[in-house]
Amino acid sequence: MNIMKIFSITTAAVLLCGVSFAQAQKSESSIQLSFSKKTDNSKIVNALVMGKKSGEKFSPAKNAHISFYAKKEKELVLITKSITDGQGKTNALLPKDLPLDTGRYFGITVKLENDSVYENSEEELRLKDVNLAIQLNPHDTARIMTATVTEITADGNVKGVKDVPINFYVQRLFGIMPAAEEHTVNTNEKGEAVFSFPKGIPGDTAGNMTVVARIDDNDMYGTVESQSPCAWGKVVPLEKDPFPREIWGAQAPWGLIITLSILYGGVWFCYFFMFFQLRKIKTEEDLTVNS
């Protein structure tokens, strides 16, 4: 126990030294921001913080303290504070009533300040808030899918946004996959992009899957995405027998079981027959005719 105490004290001392050393020479830092808007209209700002000690390469900054601000006229309003994870990443959910400026733009500023390890730095994001909606008939055999990009003008009207490249995807287990090789369609005057969905993409056991329309990393709008379930996928039936009787399976093939039973059963039958005979030898003791 004593040893452990000394041990932990030493460790603490070493840690303190490390900290004071780090304070003396802070690392350079940089922030990268991206914005995404999901189907449920939630808006998220993702931040990636990189740090760099002098003479080294940039690498993800763990445990950096950063703050997210919204720009309201000329002021910055604090949204939330956060600490980066092991990959130097963190994110913040933006409030619904995000202040917009006259051009329907919103501004987000992210600051890394007063951190013990990293130098201060900040990054700004200015994007336009648009909505993306998709319409499709889930059982339509023609598989036509329409994505519409709209914005709310300053006077409160809804207006289509033209010439926005929209990518069409299907949701897969770990990401979204382009629905076809040519999966980008630009919106027309009405803000609509029409995509005819290809056949043969596997869905689940009933052919269900989720289709995704997305404005990807747009300089003006960020990433805006909208999803919808449909039954346009190819039906992938469940395996009939997921646990077959195989040599590698949990259960042995019948042939093997039968063969082994016959072989070993036969031998053991002989053994038992023998025991039976030997028992008789024992019981015949009295019948001794020593002739």
């Binding site: 897969r172 287990l173 770990f174 990401g175 996959m177 993409i201 596997p202 992938v236």
Partner: peptide, 18 residues
Amino acid sequence: FGDQNEDAVTNSAGVTVK
């Protein structure tokens, strides 16, 4: 990495391909 039944695999950048 991915699901063969979905005919899709994804890499660390999140790029999902057929």
